[in-house]
């Protein structure tokens, strides 16, 4: 594996002006986190804190450990070193407050089930062992499907939905979880324009409802439009903070090395010219 450019991680302290008089715990706090599969570290000494109520993009090149970071925060992979806290407590104790949207390719879409049933799965944790979902749960699931514009497809077998529709079903499933903190693994990957608009609108709604969203994101062009915080990652943390402060050409260069794709280079030039500080 190539050596990663050494650079001190630049972290920006959560703005104290916007948070209340009593400092509430950060939505996510990651402290000196290292994760290694076998001998290769996939995350190296990562350290940051995310304030609640923000839309946070996790960006970095392929193999930078973005998905692993989400899984480590969720407690789905063993941590080699360091710790994670969700709202000031270990993730294990906060399951009911966490919603998770996996990558679309991570499941078998030939599975014999329909959209409604997949959304209902989001309520399984709340039901506990052995109990089956009833009418109330079904109503909530239908509402969530309507919220993402998929009510008409409730009884459609999931393999017969388009990629964008499948992604919306996953989002509806996260919505019924009614969590305070959402983790999404590439929610915008390979979706059509209509779905992209739906998801972006949904993210804004979640934020105005006081929720925190942490999403792995690939499209550097839309980071400014969709998110207000950003975590730049390439095995090590490059920077974490508000978009306008840390989403800079210098940090992007450190994150991606010389491997910025052409399109993102174009976006970067736009950044250099000093357009847009929203």
């Amino acid at each position: 594996m190539k050596p990663v450019p050494q650079m001190p991680a630049q972290t920006v302290a959560p703005p104290t002006a916007t948070s209340g008089p009593t400092a509430s715990p950060p939505a996510v706090e990651v402290h000196d986190l290292t994760v290694a599969y076998h001998t290769q570290p996939v995350l190296w000494d990562v350290d940051f804190a995310l304030p609640p109520g923000r839309l946070v993009a996790v960006i970095g090149p392929n193999g930078a450990g973005k998905s692993t970071l989400l899984k480590a925060i969720l407690g789905l992979v063993p941590l080699t070193a360091g710790w994670v806290e969700i709202f000031g407590r270990p993730p294990r104790e906060q399951r009911a407050r966490i919603g998770y949207v996996p990558q679309r390719e991570s499941v078998d879409w030939d599975f014999p089930t329909d959209a409604l049933d997949v959304v209902l799965m989001g309520l399984y944790g709340r039901l506990g062992w052995f109990r089956r979902p009833g009418r109330r749960e079904r109503e909530r699931a239908l509402n969530a499907l309507a919220q993402v514009g998929m009510a008409a497809f409730a009884r459609r077998q999931i393999g017969q939905l388009s990629g964008g529709q499948q992604q919306r079903v996953f989002l509806a499933r996260a919505l019924v979880q009614d969590a305070a903190l959402y983790f999404m693994d590439e929610p915008f990957a390979g979706v059509d324009a209509a779905t992209e608009r739906t998801i972006a609108g949904l993210l804004r709604e979640l934020r105005s409802a006081g929720k925190t969203v942490v999403a792995v994101h690939h499209d550097l062009q839309t980071v400014r439009e969709y998110f207000d915080w950003v975590v730049l990652l390439n095995l090590r943390l490059v920077a974490a903070g508000p978009v306008e402060q840390v989403f800079t050409p210098e940090n992007l260069h450190t994150t991606y090395g010389g491997r910025l794709p052409v399109l993102t280079q174009a976006a970067e030039t736009r950044l250099r010219r000093g357009t847009g500080s929203d």
């Binding site: 899984k71 969720l74 789905l76 399951r95 966490i98 998770y100 996996p102 991570s106 499941v107 078998d108 599975f111 089930t113 997949v118 799965m121 989001g122 399984y124 944790g125 039901l127 062992w129 052995f130 089956r132 979902p133 499933r173």
Partner: peptide, 22 residues
């Protein structure tokens, strides 16, 4: 019958099942 939903979610999406504590 008893573990219907646990078997279902664990088969379809084991990551979600783990995240839900199932």
């Amino acid at each position: 019958t008893l573990c219907w939903k646990e078997l279902k979610v664990g088969t379809f999406d084991p990551t979600l099942a783990a995240a839900l504590g199932l």
